[in-house]
Simulated scan of single mutants.
Amino acid sequence: MNNRPLYFDYAATTPVDERVIQVMVECLGFNGNFGNPASSSHAFGQQARRSVELARQQVADLVGAQAQQIVWTSGATESNNLALKGVAQARGFGGGHIVTSQIEHKAILDTARQLQDSGIEVTYLLPDAEGLVTAQAVSEALREDTFLVSVMLVNNELGTLNDIPAIGQTVREHGALFHVDAAQGAGKVAINLTEWPVDLMSFSAHKLYGPKGIGALYVGPRAEQRLQAQIHGGGHEGGLRSGTLATHQIAAMGAAFALAAEHFAEEAATIVRLRSRLLKQLGAIAGCCLNGSATQRIPHTLSLTFREGEFNGQALSASIAFSATSACNSASNAPSHVLLALGLDARNAGRTIRLSLGRFTTEQDIDQVAQLIKTALASPPAFWAAPQP
């Protein structure tokens, strides 16, 4: 256990908090809260339903929504699909225009390309030099037939924070619906859907110390009648997402979001302090560059390019769990679409690492990771060959 790499990949997934695990376990086994929440005729189902509705309220409380506006899904990927496809299908597919950005998660980009195949036009906005999608860029892309805009709250690779209230106001004045992928932002950014002009917002439990396989979609009043279900069979979740509710996962997501709300200020301050400690040590490395805005970002995620020296990523990965790109891109070994959109060439994209900090990161971890990076930069790659004369 002591030989495990240092964990700096919280943006990919977080370990489930022990307090959340306890809530999950209480919903399993014959002596637990195992009933079907839809079985309202007996005590087992009623108890499960109470846990589901408590969790719905806990998720809503963290993001300033009403409990009835939270729809359970299997994760942010499904939430994104339901938002985009559900809105497109409700208006009959064929024709119309959607605006999104080139640096969205693949769950948005791949879904948008599927909608293009059905005859919908899509504009993919470039980020600015700071890695941000601006309200002005969105405004300039809007057309008379634009019916949906989808822009993420926090970029999963850069950690940059888009001005969602400003973008949302622009979209609302136009009359289109506005969807936000907030998988990387919930619990890290103060979200208030009572005030923000957002119609649909996607959440994931496993980015916030909850289990994988459970997420939610916020459906605001402007979107209620403009969204069609993508999974049918029983009319669960107000007819928007059929399927027997997984009480243990839902209760765990609620507990995770409640913990995030309870410790929000404290954890934010801790992550800011740890990020500053890390950047101070890495700042001494020649050619080390932070990608994306230095100020309009969350402190949890850092994208760092090492433009000088020998970059031995293979040696680094043996001692540090980090990402070279987002988890959804890792299998292809292709350069990050986010970094390419930001203007990096393939070489520098290949010399970039994403370090993401979280609840269990310590000062000792920070000091160790900084030293390991310095050592890796000073070491030749395992298959290094001397240049020919």
Rank of each mutant, 00 (worst) to 15 (best):
I214W: 03
F178K: 01
L208W: 07
A216K: 12
E195A: 12
G187V: 10
E224A: 15
Q184C: 06
P221D: 15
G210I: 14
V180A: 05
M201C: 11
L161H: 09
P211R: 11
A166Y: 03
A186S: 09
T170H: 01
P221H: 08
I231H: 00
A223W: 02
F203P: 00
L200C: 05
G234L: 09
Q169D: 14
H174K: 12
H232F: 14
H232Q: 15
V171I: 11
G210N: 14
H206S: 14
R172H: 11
L208Y: 07
G185Y: 05
K212T: 13
L161K: 04
Y218W: 09
A183F: 06
I167P: 01
W196R: 03
Y218Q: 09
F203N: 00
A186T: 12
R172V: 15
F178H: 02
A190S: 12
N162P: 13
V198P: 01
G185Q: 11
A223S: 10
L208K: 08
G187R: 06
P165W: 06
P197W: 03
A223G: 04
L217Y: 04
N156S: 15
L177K: 04
H206P: 04
V189Y: 04
W196A: 04
N155I: 10
L227V: 06
G168S: 14
G213V: 13
N156K: 06
R226Q: 14
E157V: 13
V198S: 00
E157T: 12
D181S: 02
I191F: 06
L161N: 08
A186G: 10
K212G: 15
G235S: 09
G215S: 07
E173R: 15
E224C: 13
L217Q: 04
N156A: 15
Y218T: 11
T160H: 00
G239L: 01
Q225F: 13
L158T: 14
I167C: 03
V189Q: 01
P165V: 14
H179T: 12
E237S: 09
H174L: 13
A186C: 09
L217D: 05
L208V: 15
L227T: 03
L158E: 06
A190I: 12
E173M: 11
N192S: 11
P211Y: 08
E195W: 07
G210F: 11
S204F: 13
P221N: 12
N156Q: 14
Q169V: 12
P221I: 13
E173K: 11
E173V: 15
Y218N: 05
F203L: 14
H206G: 07
G220V: 13
T160V: 05
I231A: 00
L200I: 15
G215M: 05
Q169F: 09
D163L: 00
E237M: 11
A190Y: 02
G168R: 03
A205Q: 06
G168W: 05
D181M: 01
A176S: 09
A190V: 13
Q230Y: 03
G215D: 05
R226V: 08
K207H: 10
A166T: 15
R222N: 10
G213L: 08
G185D: 03
G238Q: 10
A182E: 02
G187E: 12
L177C: 09
